[in-house]
């Protein structure tokens, strides 16, 4: 496959094969920071945090997806994203994400007892990822 400029990406959730196609590169939210996967990347397993999965398509268009944490696995024959939840920009309810963000932020600033902090943080991260995806997509990237 020398000279190939794209590779195969699949995004899987427990519910379904969420997205698949050939891509030029992927920029993903790793637990230790953003990373990029180009063609011919060494076999790797990355843990993801909730965030934006940025995919560059063969025709140079961008595809953004909000992912809810999980893994990105680079295998010689394909690259897979395993995530608990994934959403395309058109599936995102911006108003709802906004409300979720406010709710989580309020919980985190008040820190009243009975607040599940890791859970609120995760909710906040997911809401921010959704908002970002919606924003990128509407910014005319496509």
């Amino acid at each position: 496959m020398a000279g190939e400029r794209t590779y195969r990406l699949e995004v899987l959730t427990l519910q379904r094969m969420f997205w698949q196609g050939d891509v030029r590169f992927v920029i993903a939210p790793g637990q230790e920071g953003l990373f990029e996967v180009l063609v011919g990347h060494a076999p790797y397993v990355f843990a993801l945090k909730p965030g934006v999965l940025h995919v560059r398509l063969p025709d140079e268009r961008n595809q953004y997806m909000a992912v809810g944490g999980g893994f990105l696995v680079v295998q010689p024959d394909r690259t897979s994203v395993l995530t608990r939840s994934a959403e395309l920009p058109e599936e995102i309810d911006v108003a709802r994400a906004q409300r979720a963000r406010e709710r989580a932020e309020k919980r985190l600033t008040e820190r009243s007892e009975g607040v599940d902090v890791p859970r609120a943080q995760a909710a906040l991260a997911r809401a921010l990822a959704r908002l970002k995806v919606a924003e990128y997509a509407s910014a005319g990237a496509r």
């Binding site: 790793g30 637990q31 990373f35 060494a42 076999p43 790797y44 397993v45 990355f46 843990a47 944490g69």
Partner: peptide, 16 residues
């Protein structure tokens, strides 16, 4: 394939 892991080893298990 001989994978590399990030984060390495046990920290990955924490998520996995």
């Amino acid at each position: 394939a001989a994978y590399q892991f990030e984060p390495a080893g046990d920290a990955l298990l924490e998520t996995l």
